[in-house]
Protein backbone atom coordinates (compact mmCIF):
# COMPACT_ATOMS: atom_id res chain seq x y z
CA UNK A 1 0.00 0.00 0.00
CA UNK A 2 1.28 3.44 -0.97
CA UNK A 3 1.79 5.79 1.97
CA UNK A 4 -0.20 8.99 1.49
CA UNK A 5 1.85 12.15 1.56
CA UNK A 6 0.50 14.73 4.03
CA UNK A 7 -1.13 17.78 2.43
CA UNK A 8 1.26 20.10 4.26
CA UNK A 9 4.24 18.40 2.60
CA UNK A 10 2.58 18.53 -0.84
CA UNK A 11 1.83 22.22 -0.40
CA UNK A 12 5.41 22.88 0.65
CA UNK A 13 6.67 21.19 -2.51
CA UNK A 14 4.16 23.10 -4.64
CA UNK A 15 5.39 26.43 -3.31
CA UNK A 16 8.87 25.85 -4.68
CA UNK A 17 9.31 26.11 -8.46
CA UNK A 18 11.98 23.39 -8.51
CA UNK A 19 9.79 20.85 -6.73
CA UNK A 20 6.41 22.00 -8.06
CA UNK A 21 5.98 19.25 -10.65
CA UNK A 22 7.04 16.60 -8.18
CA UNK A 23 4.64 17.92 -5.56
CA UNK A 24 1.84 17.97 -8.12
CA UNK A 25 2.54 14.35 -9.01
CA UNK A 26 2.18 13.41 -5.35
CA UNK A 27 -1.08 15.34 -5.23
CA UNK A 28 -2.42 13.42 -8.25
CA UNK A 29 -1.37 10.09 -6.75
CA UNK A 30 -3.05 10.97 -3.46
CA UNK A 31 -6.36 12.22 -4.83
CA UNK A 32 -6.81 10.53 -8.20
CA UNK A 33 -8.99 7.70 -6.96
CA UNK A 34 -11.27 9.87 -4.85
CA UNK A 35 -11.77 12.32 -7.68
CA UNK A 36 -12.18 9.61 -10.30
CA UNK A 37 -14.89 7.79 -8.32
CA UNK A 38 -16.66 11.01 -7.47
CA UNK A 39 -16.84 11.76 -11.21
CA UNK A 40 -17.46 8.17 -12.33
CA UNK A 41 -20.53 7.85 -10.12
CA UNK A 42 -21.91 10.98 -11.72
CA UNK A 43 -21.17 10.25 -15.39
CA UNK A 44 -21.02 6.40 -15.18
CA UNK A 45 -19.00 6.06 -18.38
CA UNK A 46 -15.29 5.37 -17.84
CA UNK A 47 -14.05 7.34 -20.84
CA UNK A 48 -15.97 10.43 -19.75
CA UNK A 49 -14.80 10.00 -16.18
CA UNK A 50 -11.21 9.64 -17.38
CA UNK A 51 -11.36 12.83 -19.45
CA UNK A 52 -13.01 14.80 -16.69
CA UNK A 53 -10.58 13.55 -14.04
CA UNK A 54 -7.60 14.60 -16.17
CA UNK A 55 -9.18 18.01 -16.79
CA UNK A 56 -9.81 18.45 -13.08
CA UNK A 57 -6.14 17.91 -12.24
CA UNK A 58 -5.04 20.21 -15.04
CA UNK A 59 -7.33 22.87 -13.60
CA UNK A 60 -5.85 22.23 -10.17
CA UNK A 61 -2.39 22.80 -11.63
CA UNK A 62 -3.40 25.98 -13.43
CA UNK A 63 -5.10 27.44 -10.39
CA UNK A 64 -2.56 26.51 -7.75
CA UNK A 65 -1.72 30.18 -7.28
CA UNK A 66 -5.33 30.90 -6.33
CA UNK A 67 -5.43 28.20 -3.66
CA UNK A 68 -5.74 29.79 -0.27
CA UNK A 69 -4.05 28.04 2.62
CA UNK A 70 -6.99 28.68 4.93
CA UNK A 71 -9.07 26.00 3.16
CA UNK A 72 -8.19 22.33 3.00
CA UNK A 73 -6.51 21.00 -0.10
CA UNK A 74 -8.89 18.07 -0.59
CA UNK A 75 -11.94 20.36 -0.16
CA UNK A 76 -10.57 22.68 -2.84
CA UNK A 77 -9.84 19.82 -5.25
CA UNK A 78 -13.26 18.28 -4.59
CA UNK A 79 -14.90 21.62 -5.32
CA UNK A 80 -13.20 21.78 -8.70
CA UNK A 81 -14.20 18.16 -9.30
CA UNK A 82 -17.85 18.75 -8.43
CA UNK A 83 -18.04 21.80 -10.70
CA UNK A 84 -16.45 19.92 -13.60
CA UNK A 85 -18.75 16.91 -13.24
CA UNK A 86 -21.90 19.04 -13.00
CA UNK A 87 -20.93 21.27 -15.90
CA UNK A 88 -20.16 18.18 -18.00
CA UNK A 89 -23.67 16.83 -17.42
CA UNK A 90 -25.18 20.23 -18.08
CA UNK A 91 -23.27 20.63 -21.35
CA UNK A 92 -24.20 17.13 -22.41
CA UNK A 93 -27.87 17.89 -21.82
CA UNK A 94 -27.60 21.16 -23.76
CA UNK A 95 -25.91 19.44 -26.71
CA UNK A 96 -28.89 17.16 -27.16
CA UNK A 97 -30.83 19.09 -29.77
CA UNK A 98 -33.70 16.62 -29.75
CA UNK A 99 -34.28 16.13 -26.05
CA UNK A 100 -36.51 13.06 -26.28
CA UNK A 101 -34.15 11.39 -23.83
CA UNK A 102 -32.26 13.06 -21.03
CA UNK A 103 -28.61 12.33 -20.34
CA UNK A 104 -29.72 10.28 -17.37
CA UNK A 105 -31.91 8.08 -19.58
CA UNK A 106 -28.98 7.61 -21.93
CA UNK A 107 -26.68 6.83 -19.02
CA UNK A 108 -29.02 4.12 -17.79
CA UNK A 109 -28.21 2.25 -21.01
CA UNK A 110 -24.56 2.30 -19.96
CA UNK A 111 -25.51 0.17 -16.98
CA UNK A 112 -26.42 -2.65 -19.36
CA UNK A 113 -22.90 -2.63 -20.79
CA UNK A 114 -20.98 -5.37 -19.03
CA UNK A 115 -17.69 -3.74 -19.97
CA UNK A 116 -18.42 -0.93 -17.55
CA UNK A 117 -20.85 -2.29 -15.00
CA UNK A 118 -20.17 -5.49 -13.13
CA UNK A 119 -22.48 -5.05 -10.15
CA UNK A 120 -25.36 -7.38 -9.35
CA UNK A 121 -29.00 -6.76 -10.15
CA UNK A 122 -29.66 -4.91 -6.88
CA UNK A 123 -26.72 -2.58 -7.49
CA UNK A 124 -27.97 -1.96 -11.02
CA UNK A 125 -31.37 -1.04 -9.58
CA UNK A 126 -29.72 1.35 -7.15
CA UNK A 127 -27.91 3.07 -10.02
CA UNK A 128 -31.15 3.30 -11.98
CA UNK A 129 -32.83 4.83 -8.94
CA UNK A 130 -29.98 7.33 -8.61
CA UNK A 131 -30.42 8.39 -12.21
CA UNK A 132 -33.95 9.47 -11.37
CA UNK A 133 -32.57 12.11 -8.98
CA UNK A 134 -31.60 15.64 -9.98
CA UNK A 135 -27.83 15.89 -10.58
CA UNK A 136 -27.05 17.92 -7.45
CA UNK A 137 -29.15 15.67 -5.23
CA UNK A 138 -27.40 12.65 -6.73
CA UNK A 139 -24.06 14.27 -6.03
CA UNK A 140 -24.94 14.87 -2.38
CA UNK A 141 -26.19 11.31 -2.03
CA UNK A 142 -23.01 9.89 -3.59
CA UNK A 143 -20.74 11.90 -1.32
CA UNK A 144 -22.68 10.87 1.76
CA UNK A 145 -23.56 7.26 0.97
CA UNK A 146 -20.59 6.06 -1.11
CA UNK A 147 -17.78 8.42 -0.08
CA UNK A 148 -18.95 8.50 3.55
CA UNK A 149 -18.24 12.20 3.80
CA UNK A 150 -19.52 14.26 6.71
CA UNK A 151 -22.17 16.88 6.09
CA UNK A 152 -19.70 19.56 7.14
CA UNK A 153 -17.23 18.40 4.50
CA UNK A 154 -19.90 18.24 1.81
CA UNK A 155 -20.99 21.71 2.87
CA UNK A 156 -17.46 23.03 2.33
CA UNK A 157 -17.27 21.43 -1.09
CA UNK A 158 -20.70 22.40 -2.38
CA UNK A 159 -21.15 25.68 -0.52
CA UNK A 160 -24.56 24.48 0.69
CA UNK A 161 -25.68 24.67 4.31
CA UNK A 162 -25.61 21.50 6.41
CA UNK A 163 -29.35 21.76 7.00
CA UNK A 164 -30.10 21.91 3.30
CA UNK A 165 -27.75 18.97 2.67
CA UNK A 166 -29.46 16.85 5.32
CA UNK A 167 -32.84 17.60 3.79
CA UNK A 168 -31.54 16.83 0.30
CA UNK A 169 -30.00 13.53 1.42
CA UNK A 170 -33.12 12.35 3.24
CA UNK A 171 -35.34 13.19 0.27
CA UNK A 172 -32.94 11.25 -1.96
CA UNK A 173 -32.97 8.26 0.41
CA UNK A 174 -36.76 8.26 0.47
CA UNK A 175 -37.01 8.39 -3.33
CA UNK A 176 -34.46 5.61 -3.78
CA UNK A 177 -36.15 3.40 -1.19
CA UNK A 178 -39.49 3.87 -2.93
CA UNK A 179 -37.91 2.98 -6.28
CA UNK A 180 -36.23 -0.12 -4.86
CA UNK A 181 -39.47 -1.32 -3.27
CA UNK A 182 -41.49 -0.65 -6.42
CA UNK A 183 -39.03 -2.44 -8.70
Amino acid sequence: MVTETPDSQILELLRNDDSKRYGFNLLVIKYQQKIYWLVRRMVLDHEDANDITQNIFLKVWENLSSFRADSQLYTWIYRIGVNEALSFLKKKNLRRFVPFFTVEQKLSETLNDDNFFKGDEVQRKLQLALLKLPAKQRLVFNMKYFELMKYEEISEVTGTSVGALKASYHIAVRKIEEFLKAN
Binding site: R21, V28, Q32, R40, Q54, F116, L126, F146, V173, E177
Partner: peptide, 30 residues
Protein backbone atom coordinates in the same frame (compact mmCIF):
# COMPACT_ATOMS: atom_id res chain seq x y z
CA UNK B 1 -35.10 2.73 9.90
CA UNK B 2 -35.92 5.02 7.00
CA UNK B 3 -34.59 2.88 4.14
CA UNK B 4 -34.02 -0.76 5.11
CA UNK B 5 -33.52 -1.89 1.49
CA UNK B 6 -30.85 0.74 0.90
CA UNK B 7 -29.17 0.16 4.25
CA UNK B 8 -28.80 -3.56 3.66
CA UNK B 9 -27.27 -3.09 0.24
CA UNK B 10 -23.59 -3.73 -0.36
CA UNK B 11 -21.85 -1.14 -2.43
CA UNK B 12 -18.49 -0.59 -4.03
CA UNK B 13 -16.85 -2.43 -6.91
CA UNK B 14 -19.88 -2.20 -9.19
CA UNK B 15 -18.00 -0.26 -11.88
CA UNK B 16 -15.12 -1.73 -13.79
CA UNK B 17 -12.00 0.16 -14.82
CA UNK B 18 -9.14 -0.86 -17.13
CA UNK B 19 -6.35 -2.80 -15.44
CA UNK B 20 -3.61 -0.61 -14.00
CA UNK B 21 -5.60 2.55 -14.74
CA UNK B 22 -4.55 4.38 -11.58
CA UNK B 23 -0.91 3.44 -12.14
CA UNK B 24 -0.87 5.21 -15.49
CA UNK B 25 -3.15 8.19 -14.74
CA UNK B 26 -0.50 10.38 -13.02
CA UNK B 27 1.91 10.02 -15.94
CA UNK B 28 -0.92 10.73 -18.41
CA UNK B 29 -1.70 13.96 -16.58
CA UNK B 30 1.99 14.90 -16.40
Amino acid sequence: HQAPELFGMKHGGEFSIPDGYFDTLPSLIQ
